[in-house]
């Protein structure tokens, strides 16, 4: 019984939140990885693209709620997602047309494109704050819980409760669907294969008759989709504040690099490595040991490796460590000069 209690404790505070946050990071990291491999630069504006997508979702959610369009207990934000994805894609394409395209044609160094993406980051960040304001926005409606702690305790008779929020369930399911679709596209369709070919060897892709402009278009469609979904899921789960999305860029880069930049599987693994390390390192194990150790063996203190204040810093520490020890990441990624 005690063992079961301790397991539920871990599931409730580490496994479910870890899977949720990990999925959000993984979707973000996939976006960064795809831009990196196909367009060959580190896109610092990706966090703001996510923010833009979330903002579109929020605005559309408001419109739907105002017009009394409801879908039972299902979150409206998920219903409007296809529309806000389209808005995000259009925004990405506009930015590409007016900003990034020029540097691609000039064959600029990737570090110049990186600095350009910082300009885009500023611009987009300003635009978003201008439209929706800098404040906190909660746009989750519908049923809040899939499983409540109280019900779980009643059901099982355990001391520890297990809670699954709807946002957590939605995040995990939607991420799985999106990732399966993405891998199907990349590995099974002709367009997906040509996109991988283009990222592998641009010259040879051109010789093979692959149209680069089409590849770029598809890259932004995928990036916009991933950014919008990742941003919306994060915003639903936590809450939306434009400011936090700027800070999300670094954990996402961490996930992409830890997994091996340029490798989609790596990006997903990286997302979960980051999310679980954050939780495992900052979790207070006192209660856990309370269940599995005899009373007189229980040490003092919270039994925490690092205080929760350092939660996000953990991702930076892992990032720096990986860069120093194995810059190619867990799964060997691409190194683009």
């Amino acid at each position: 019984m005690e063992i079961l209690n301790s397991f539920i404790l871990i599931a409730n505070y580490i496994i479910i939140p870890g899977l949720t946050y990990g999925s959000q990071l993984a979707l973000g990291a996939l976006g960064i990885t795809i831009v990196y491999t196909v367009l060959r630069f580190s896109n610092f504006a990706h966090g703001e693209f996510m923010s833009f997508g979330t903002m579109s979702t929020i605005l559309l959610t408001w419109v739907f709620i105002d017009s009394n369009i409801k879908f039972g207990t299902f979150p409206t934000a998920i219903i409007v997602l296809p529309l806000s994805i389209i808005f995000t894609i259009i925004y990405c394409l506009l930015i590409d047309k007016f900003v990034f395209k020029f540097y691609r044609q000039q064959k600029s160094k990737s570090v110049i494109a990186l600095i350009v993406s910082i300009g885009v980051m500023f611009f987009t960040g300003g635009l978003i704050r201008f439209i929706i304001g800098p404040g906190d926005k909660n746009f989750m409606d519908g049923e809040r819980f899939i499983l409540k702690a109280k019900d779980f305790k009643m059901l099982t008779g355990l001391n520890e409760g297990l809670t699954i929020k709807s946002t957590q369930g939605v995040t995990i399911i939607l991420s799985i669907i999106l990732v399966i679709l993405l891998f199907w596209f990349l590995n099974k369709t002709k367009t997906g294969k040509s996109m991988r070919a283009y990222s592998d060897n641009q010259e040879l892709a051109l010789l093979s008759g692959i149209n680069p402009e089409r590849i770029v278009l598809i890259t932004w469609i995928i990036t916009g989709t991933l950014a919008c979904v990742a941003g919306t899921l994060y915003g639903l789960d936590k809450s939306y504040k434009p400011f936090t999305y700027l800070h999300l860029v670094l954990p996402i880069f961490a996930a992409a690099i830890v997994g091996g930049v340029g490798n989609p599987i790596g990006a997903i693994i990286g997302g979960f490595v980051i999310s679980f390390s954050e939780l495992l390192i900052t979790f207070a194990y006192k209660k856990f040991f309370f269940y599995i150790l005899p009373d007189n063996f229980l040490p003092d203190g919270l039994l925490q490796i690092l205080s929760t204040d350092y939660k996000i810093a953990v991702s930076f520490i892992i990032l720096v460590l990986v860069l120093l020890i194995k810059p190619t990441g867990i799964y060997k990624g691409k190194i683009i000069e």
Binding site: F41, S42, S110, V111, L114, L250, F253, A254, I257, S307, D309, Y310, I312, A313, F316, I317, L319, V320, L323, L324, P327, I335, E337
Partner: peptide
Amino acid sequence: SLGLRSDYLAIATLGISEIIIYILKN
């Protein structure tokens, strides 16, 4: 970290500076 390529160096220095701020904050 100076042996890293330019965009990795950018991300590494950004990460380290965040760590410094976290330490000073906590």
